[in-house]
């Protein structure tokens, strides 16, 4: 029952992250990729929503997409784990299935 939910849209433009959080169970993982990584930043209007999800879900963000968008480590919400492509593969392997929120 532990699924991996990938989100690739900005939380300020699309409801993908909000819906992914709403539709994911405790114990599941949420991986932010592409424009989805904006959801990992501190001080935004989406921060509380992300922190709320982190109570019983694990949130990850993809390193190369953070780098391209100039999101430095000190801007990332505490507790979000940064993964590279190999880490992405590990997550896919460790979870039952992948659900993509586009």
């Amino acid at each position: 029952m532990a699924d991996l939910h990938t989100v690739n849209k900005s939380p300020f433009e699309k409801s993908s992250l909000e819906t992914a959080i709403k539709c994911s169970l405790a114990g599941s993982s949420i991986l932010l990729i592409e424009d989805g990584v904006y959801g990992a930043t501190k001080g935004t209007v989406a921060e509380d929503m992300v922190k709320g999800a982190m109570g019983d879900r694990k949130v990850y963000a993809l390193k190369s997409d953070l780098m391209a968008r100039a999101i430095k480590d000190d801007r990332i919400i505490d507790g979000i784990e940064i993964v590279d492509y190999a880490g992405f593969v590990d997550l896919v392997e460790a979870t039952d299935k992948v659900q993509a929120w586009l």
Binding site: K63, S64, D65, M67, A68, R69, A70, K72, D84
Partner: peptide
């Protein structure tokens, strides 16, 4: 926003 690094993208 400054500081973009696409070397791994």
């Amino acid at each position: 926003v400054k500081g973009s690094d696409t070397s791994e993208s």
